[in-house]
Write a protein that binds this DNA or RNA. Structure first.
Length: 375
DNA sequence: TCGCCTTTGAAGCAA
DNA sequence: TTGCTTCAAAGGCGA
């Protein structure tokens, strides 16, 4: 699948991304649609009912029906995969739902709402459960039509914000008014824009004041983003801004590693070896879509298993129109830009090796096993 | 308690 | 340049 051009091609690029899988999916989808018998559907639905414990009448709820169909297709695909014995078809083309009607939507985590009290947003989306961990940047995104509207400016218009570290960073992007704007002197505010329901871009301070954006983020800063780790509390950016993108030690893996390390050193030299908080990768378009739609799918299907939900979301993602997907590509692009501004020295490789270690080892083992079989 | 599963996209890296 | 690998979210589940 074509990808956004890397560092330089940050300008959306959604157009290229949306083509290939669509074409592939249509054909395969037709084939699979035909192969989907009613008997299978009945079995799948029954299994789904058992699985998802649907308490509502699906027949009366189109969303529920579609959800059942989604899951049913997943089930059928899994069955087909088993039969194919190794031929894994994960292509999303088999799913072809109607254009997703649930958009536009608003699903901001309540943790990012001004107060914990029920907000007006709660009426707009069936938030079933609050997000446990809210992505640092995601809550900043309005998902509003206003933002997505292409009338005033083109989403494809090149962002004026340089992708290069330390390169000129304008105070304002003309095509994205107030978007993550940083003053030239590096001291300013992160201005919530794009109709962000008046919630701060970042939970800058509990009292609601936006703290000045530190000079540490000024252009050309080449020093470590952990300027003075001792000064930072968990979730706080090196700039002093409590930034949720920095997953301190609350993250399970990181926290565990931290705990283990601490156990090894009963007398921790905390002041000398403070743990670097983990800065997560910015979410891509699909991840943003998942975060938004997960609660909706859970509500519709009463499913909780993320693997199944993600499959459904993956198919719905493919069912989205180009315009709808473009919205998320645009959001993802802006997230990357903001992330780049906040953590100039950060690289994705910083988090390499923190996951999948076991997987890699397992793959190596399996490959060795396969070699035995192949011989 | 830890890692896997499952999805797509972005980024890194080796060839 | 190409292709592969890893990580990002998330919650149930198996070991």
């Amino acid at each position: 699948m074509p990808q956004l051009s890397g560092a330089g091609g940050d300008d959306l690029g959604a157009t290229d991304e949306l083509i290939s899988f669509k074409d592939e999916g249509d054909q395969e989808e037709k084939t699979r649609e035909n192969a989907f018998t009613e008997g299978d559907l009945a079995d799948l639905k029954s299994s789904l009912v058992n699985e998802s414990e649907i308490g509502q009448n699906p027949a009366a709820d189109p969303e529920a029906i579609r959800c059942v169909q989604d899951a049913a297709r997943l089930y059928q695909q899994k069955q087909a995969d088993r039969m194919d014995d190794g031929i894994k078809i994960q292509d999303s083309g088999m799913y072809r739902g109607s254009a997703y009607p649930g958009y536009p939507f608003l699903m901001l985590s309540e943790s990012y709402l001004p107060n914990t009290s029920v907000s007006s947003l709660s009426n707009k989306v069936p938030v079933v459960q609050p997000s446990h961990g809210v992505h640092p940047l995601t809550p900043l995104i309005p998902y509003s039509n206003e933002h997505f509207s292409h009338g005033s400016h083109s989403p494809h218009a090149p962002a004026d914000i340089s992708q290069k570290q330390g390169v000129h960073r304008p105070s304002q992007s003309p095509d994205m008014p107030g978007f993550y704007s940083l003053p030239a002197n590096g001291v300013g505010q992160i201005t919530p824009s794009m109709g962000w329901q008046s919630q701060p871009v970042y939970p800058l301070s509990p009292c609601g004041f936006r703290q000045p954006y530190p000079t540490a983020l000024s252009a050309g800063a080449t020093y470590s983003r952990f300027t003075h780790p001792l000064m930072l509390s968990p979730g706080m950016h090196t700039t002093g801004i409590p930034h949720p993108a920095i997953v301190p030690h609350s993250g399970k893996q990181d926290m565990d590693h931290y705990n283990r390390t601490m156990k090894q050193q009963p007398e921790p030299k905390r002041e000398k070896e403070p743990k670097k908080p983990t800065i997560k990768k910015p979410l891509n378009a699909f991840m943003l879509y998942m975060k938004e739609m997960r609660a909706k799918v859970i509500a519709e299907c009463t499913l909780k298993e993320s693997a199944a939900i993600n499959q459904i979301l993956g198919r719905r993602w493919h069912a989205l129109s180009r315009e709808e997907q473009a919205k998320y590509y645009e959001l993802a692009r802006k997230e990357r830009q903001l992330h780049m501004q906040l953590y100039p020295g950060w690289s994705a490789r910083d988090n390499y090796g923190k996951k999948k270690r076991r997987t890699r080892e397992k793959q190596q083992d399996s490959s060795s096993d396969n070699s035995l079989h192949c011989s």
